[in-house]
């Protein structure tokens, strides 16, 4: 710190709210997280003016990496316009001066709770996932000290046992969102509570994913072009949520992750959960010029990495 810096006009807050020491600490941890994919790196996790558990982990990462030239997209459950996403987005913009967008193609940083965009992210983009519980072993080992040792030993036997029990009892895997994955053939990792539909999007992706849990004070990363495999058996496979036969009532999109909206008559109507994508489809239908990127799943529901998702034999469905 220099005298000139101390003497410059006072500001209500530091750039990006966090002081330079706090940002530097998060940055140091991010670099280590990238170097050890899927490993949870502890960090100080400062309190922010947003309640703990509301995205403070993701927010600290975004605030530490963003500069005035960034373009930020914030989504919650896929939606740009939910009040929580709006709130985080305006805080980020207010503290960093970044431009904001709902277009996944234009964003340089995408902070998300519970979803990845349907359009493929590209090199140079950073996806920041908010994480409520970073520990994939929590369900089988609530004691965090023991879980850390299990990661140290790469001892995931309890996890496999749990998976096996699910198959024996229910004939299928019972995990909904936060389906555990193995990263770079070493660390078991929680991908955050994204639906299983989104889990494959982390595998050999072009973009960098940073995952951060503010309350639990852990951050971790999936670098670009890194293997991310859901845990599954040789004969019982990981399955994404069934989206077949669902048509988005707003955009006509098919084979995208759909929100189920219960109707008064007991039926369901469907809306694609990625509102930025829906918005672009609607604009294109109106004849407006709009750039829509390639999606992870095509309209037939085929994932873009051939062979990654395996079709289950009918008797296991």
């Amino acid at each position: 710190m220099t005298l000139a810096e101390l003497a410059r006009p006072a500001q209500d807050y530091s750039y990006a709210f966090l002081d330079e020491f706090a940002k530097r600490e998060v940055r140091r941890r991010i670099l280590k997280a990238i170097a050890i994919p899927g490993h949870q790196v502890p960090y100080a996790s400062r309190e922010l003016p947003i309640a703990r558990g509301w995205g403070t982990g993701g927010l600290q990462v975004t605030l530490s990496i963003a500069g005035p030239h960034d373009i930020v997209k914030v989504i919650d459950q896929g939606a740009d316009d939910s009040v929580n996403a709006v709130n985080l987005r305006r805080f980020i913009a207010r503290m960093t001066g970044v431009a904001t967008t709902s277009d996944a193609q234009l964003a340089t940083i995408i902070q998300s709770r519970h979803r990845i965009t349907e359009e493929r992210l590209r090199e140079g983009q950073v996806l920041v996932l908010q994480v409520p519980d970073p520990e994939p072993l929590r369900a089988v080992e609530p004691n965090i000290s023991l879980a850390r040792e299990m990661h140290a030993d790469a001892d995931y036997a309890l996890m496999w046992l749990g998976l096996y029990e699910q198959v024996v009892r229910f004939g299928t895997f019972m995990t909904g969102a936060s389906y555990p994955v193995v990263v770079h053939q070493r660390y078991l990792m929680s991908p955050s509570p994204i639906p299983r539909w989104d889990t494959p999007m982390l595998h050999q992706a072009a973009h960098l994913t940073l995952l951060s849990a503010g309350r639990e004070k852990r951050l971790y990363a999936v670098p670009p072009y890194t293997d991310v495999r859901p845990i599954e058996f040789e004969d019982v496979f990981f399955q994404v949520e069934n989206q077949q036969g669902r048509i988005c009532e707003q955009s006509g999109a098919v084979n995208k992750f759909m929100n189920e909206i219960p109707q008064p008559d007991g039926s369901m109507c469907y809306q694609a959960s990625d509102t930025g994508y829906v918005e672009k489809l609607v604009r294109r239908a109106r004849g407006e010029p709009v750039a829509i990127g390639a999606t992870y799943y095509d309209d037939d529901g085929t994932f873009y990495h051939p062979g990654y998702l395996k079709e289950q034999e009918p008797d296991h469905r």
């Binding site: 509301w54 919650d76 929580n84 519970h114 979803r115 229910f170 895997f173 639906p195 949520e241 189920e260």
Partner: peptide, 26 residues
């Protein structure tokens, strides 16, 4: 503790949908 407690007010429909799918599958 207080932050996590009130976070349950946030929407959780994606995760809820995902577990519904797992239950239907079972």
């Amino acid at each position: 503790a207080s932050g996590f407690c009130i976070h349950f007010k946030l929407p959780h429909y994606v995760t809820f949908n995902s577990s519904l799918d797992a239950i239907r599958r079972a």
